[in-house]
Simulated assay, not measured.
Amino acid sequence: MNDRHASGKRHDDRDEIARLLPAPADWDLPRERHLRHKDLLMRHIDRHQAETATGTPTTTPAAPPVRRPRLLLRPALFAPAAALALAGALTAGAVLGGNGGARGDAARHAAGDMRPAAALLHRISDAAADHGAPTVRDDQFVYTREKVRGADVTSGRAVVGPLQDRETWMAQRPGPLHRLGLMRTDGETLPINAELGDTKGTPAGLSRPTYRWLASLPTDPDKLLAYLYAKTPATAGRERDQAVFEQIGGLLGGVMPPRTAAALYQAAARIPGVDRSPRARDAIGRQGLGIVRDDKRYGVRTEWVFDTEDYSFLGSRSYLTRNTSYGKAGTLLSSTAELAHAVVDKAGVRPAGEAGTDRSGTA
């Protein structure tokens, strides 16, 4: 018993020492993960690799329909790069198939192989479960204020844009809705419309996670993970574990039922390949604890950043992990920093305490 206690204390000491060490120089820039038209960058990378191998130009195949998860929570400038996080063809009726049990076993074994990440995610889960549950009505809006930065890759190179202020007001009605809310970026206010292809409106779900919908998700981590593997859209050649990891990342932050948040973190701990980074930074340079997963095919790391004291979600980032035609290893693709969350009665109106002049809108 004493040996176990001493071992645990030594582990905690190592964690604390690692947390206090300065970040490596090549991580000084804030970096993140939420990207959009993934297929564009994937096809360019594949084409570049093929041309390099054969010495002959290749043609780019027609792009499949791109799903835009939480599209309007990320600026249009980031669209070409943002696909690295959650893009893909929207596949109706995607299911786990007959290997669901085997996948679950593999995930649990993998979780055992990455104990530091699993241990940290369980601590984050416990902290999330201790938060009070807010009251959110269907006629209200969830307000988010954040700093965002991302890269435009339409030129064939990753061109990092400036840090921007963004506020969003997301409608909580179950839907389907044609007008989902409002987004204000650096003072410019625009409506948030239904997802592309949703001619009858976008219902509550993975691409529009309302509070009521989040509360309806399974709170058993294994059942929740099975649900996410079944519902996350599939893309040919896309690593399934990475897609589900990024799908969870797209749900983090904001106003969420505590039990759902706790279950999401425990589900993430079961995904093979998830690792821990003790020195991570969000879009405004706040240093925290990182939970990461690498997309090894495309050379991209997706990272979630958490506060070192209370384990609250600070933001996320994505960046290249190897040299590509789009940039050198370490090149930022996208980054965010979560600053404020609240529930308000009207779109366009800031909650009490938020700086600036309130401007109303309709949704």
Rank of each mutant, 00 (worst) to 15 (best):
D310I: 00
D307G: 12
L314A: 09
V305N: 06
S318T: 08
G327D: 02
V300G: 07
T321D: 08
Y326T: 02
Y326Q: 04
Y298F: 13
K296Q: 02
V305F: 07
K296H: 07
R301Q: 14
Y298K: 01
L320W: 02
D310M: 01
R297H: 14
R297N: 11
V300C: 07
R317W: 12
V305Q: 02
D294W: 02
E309L: 03
W304V: 05
F306V: 00
D307I: 00
N323H: 13
R301L: 09
S318F: 09
Y298M: 03
R317I: 00
Y319K: 07
F313W: 14
F313V: 00
Y311D: 12
D307W: 09
R322G: 08
D307E: 09
T302N: 14
R322K: 15
S312F: 07
R317T: 12
R317V: 03
G299R: 02
D307Q: 07
L314P: 13
D294P: 05
E303P: 13
N323A: 09
Y319G: 08
E309D: 11
N323K: 06
T308M: 13
S316H: 11
W304Y: 08
D310C: 02
Y311Q: 09
G315Q: 12
R293V: 00
T324F: 04
R293Q: 12
R317K: 14
Y319R: 13
D295F: 03
R297A: 13
R301G: 08
V300S: 07
S312V: 05
V300M: 08
D310F: 09
R297T: 14
S318R: 06
S318V: 05
T324S: 15
F313I: 00
R293S: 06
T321N: 10
T324I: 00
L320S: 05
L320G: 05
Y298H: 11
Y319D: 13
V300Q: 07
G315L: 01
S318H: 11
G315S: 11
F313M: 11
T308F: 08
F306Y: 15
D295I: 04
F306I: 00
N323L: 04
Y326F: 15
R293M: 15
R317N: 15
T324P: 15
T302G: 14
